[in-house]
Nucleic acid binder design. Structure first.
Lengths: 201, 201
DNA sequence: TGACAATGTTACCGATCGGTACGTATACCT
DNA sequence: AGGTATACGTACCGATCGGTAACATTGTCA
């Protein structure tokens, strides 16, 4: 496993390594067009590098896809934690902030949903490197949503947490299916209604 | 447009035409493995026919995929209307019946979600034959759900209808992401909570 | 200066991709 | 029996797929 993960340390002005350029381009193309739809030749061409450079930094295209998703995972949790940090001790407001943001993103013209979700749809076979990353992300999201539902004081926290997850996944999908004006714009409102109906009286 | 749609007329005992065998095999493989993941060679091989037979019945692989989805569309609405017919004049019970059934299907070990949804994820580009069918199906589903929400007497029927659609799409996706024991099993329960919270008092 | 690591260059691999030109078999109708 | 239309198979196409071998070039640090 010699795949190069995105180097997080501050940019020192050095020219970007080939592996970084490749990952940047791959991330963009994989997200917008899908992983199966993009060939390695197009990635290296748009990255301005050559194919051997790709295979020196990543053992295979599948592992490159997994690296893309690992980076996506980091950015996802950064957004999630941002919404959480904005409303300390108030999980209901945290969910509202996160979902409001998702609802807005889904209304952008070229919205393409969640890279994790899309990858799992593209690779249904268990054990595929990309799918493994995707499943882990979703398991963790489920765990956190259930915990937040419990902290809200839901009668059945697991059911509410799962209901919120269903709304979120539904927003990801219908965001890219319907485009602007689609059902995803109501995700925050519906989540709040569901929460309200799920709290102890 | 000379694509052969599934002939619905009763089987007359005649040996199945090549086009029918192809569509049957393609439907199974496309649904389980994904459209992009399956090549035409594998389809004709498992159908016991040859490639020219495929291209005599379908103008392209993309149109074969669209035919698969048109058939999927028919079967989908058959299931939907079955749930509707089981509870005449009671849209809330109709939704409950439909979602209970979805919730059960998502718990089966090899559940692969909704063929329509998956196709839209695989083909993000507007105008792709498969995506066109998928989008039309979802638009109609949205229309019906909103109408049912209105018939229930929701304060905001469009929001409730969209909320139900989000839950359904979320069930499709998390059904294939989490497998048995996943969040999708609570889709009917969460929908009922959402409905309860959305009705006029 | 010399060694080393990283990248680029060129050319190539077998496999598979979606798609087609063209000949052959079969069944039906006259 | 003969013609004809329909259905199917053999063999092939160029392009692209993911991946690699072998070698030249560069910049860095000792």
């Amino acid at each position: 496993m010699k795949s190069i993960e995105p180097t997080i340390k501050a940019d020192e002005g050095t020219p970007p390594r080939a592996g970084e350029k490749i990952l940047r381009v791959a991330r963009d193309l994989f997200y917008r067009q899908g992983i199966r739809a993009i060939g390695v030749d197009e990635i290296v061409r748009r990255a301005g590098v050559t194919k051997p450079s790709l295979y020196r930094s990543f053992p295979s295209k599948d592992e490159l896809a997994a690296s893309y998703l690992r980076q996506y995972d980091l950015e996802f949790w950064a957004r999630f934690d941002e919404a959480v940090a904005a409303h300390p001790g108030d999980p209901r407001a945290q969910i509202a902030a996160f979902l409001t943001r998702i609802g807005k993103r889904t209304q952008k013209p070229d919205y393409r949903g969640c890279g994790m979700t899309n990858a799992a749809v593209e690779y249904p076979e268990h054990g595929h490197p990309a799918r493994v990353v995707s499943e882990a992300n979703k398991q963790e999201l489920r765990r956190r949503l259930r915990a937040m539902a419990a902290a809200m004081g839901a009668r059945d926290a697991d059911t509410l947490g799962d209901g919120l997850l269903l709304l979120i996944e539904g927003a990801y999908i219908s965001g890219q299916l319907f485009g602007a004006g689609g059902p995803a714009k109501s995700v925050a409102r519906n989540a709040d209604l569901l929460i309200e109906a799920s709290l102890k009286k």
